[in-house]
Each structure stands twice: as structure tokens, then as C-alpha cells.
Amino acid sequence: MSSLQSTEAVGGAVRRFKVLVAKMGLDGHDRGAKVVARALRDAGFEVIYTGLRQTPEQVALAAVQEDVDVIGVSILNGAHIHLMKRLMTKLKDLGADDIPVVLGGTIPVPDLEPLYRLGIREIFLPGTSLAEIIEKVRKLAEEKRSREEAVTGVGGC
């Protein structure tokens, strides 16, 4: 290992996982998104919150510019199928469909299947514990990092 290889070497700083917490469409329910964003921060994640009323296209571009490890979307307004379709399409267009996407909020059980089919990795229903969310998000981020490491030889820790 050269003297620069370890991320520990960067003045003791570690490369932290980066998550985009997004609200799309006209949905103003932000209690859940904010609680989750805080929980992730307190678990050591670097979180970027998009704020309300974003288009799926804006969210995809933010994810690409910030090169996040996970995109976490919160939808409670029932427009999830429509919005998630657009988000996934835009991510694909941008060549960013390797970024894992998770979803939380008001999702009726019959819609779970079609959403998973769009490529959404995890769906968190109301009542999910923060511990479970943190654990699953971390796992997805780790997986993504190790895939990248395999390609570029550059990973995090």
C-alpha cells in the first residue's frame, strides 16, 4: 500500500456514505423524510435533502451531480407509480441506474410488486424502524462501493 492508499490516511477522515433524500411532485408530507434524514446523519451518513416539490428529473440530476451511494425517496401522496417510473427512466438516461433507489411512505401493498419491478431495491412501509432503515441503506451503499472498487480499484471504507 502506498502512503496515500488508505482513506484513513486522509487526516483521519473516512469516506462516508452519501445519501440523497428526495421529495418529488406536489407531496408536502415531509415529516418522515426529515426524520429519516436526521437518523441517517446521526448514523454518520452524509445526507443531501432536495426539499419539496422536485421533479423526478431534478432528483436524478442531483443524484448524479452529488454522486450519491443511495437515493432515498419519500412519497406519501399516492403518485408513487407515476413519479418512480419517471425517476427510474431519467436515471437510466443519465447512466446512473447503478445507484440503488429505495422508497418510503404511503405505499398500498398491491403496489409493492410493480414498484419492485421498476428496479426499486427496498420499500419501507410506515412503521419501519429507523434501525432497519439505516441497516438496509448502509448495506446497499456498501454493495455499491464494492462494485465500484471492483471496477476502478477505488473504494471507500
Binding site: G25, L26, T55, G78, L83
Partner: peptide
């Protein structure tokens, strides 16, 4: 355009 997919749900 911002209303797309939202009409009548809530």
C-alpha cells in the same frame, strides 16, 4: 405539467 399523475388522488 406539475399536476401529472396527481389529479384526484388525495
Amino acid at each position: 405539467p406539475l399536476a401529472e399523475g396527481h389529479v384526484g388522488i388525495e
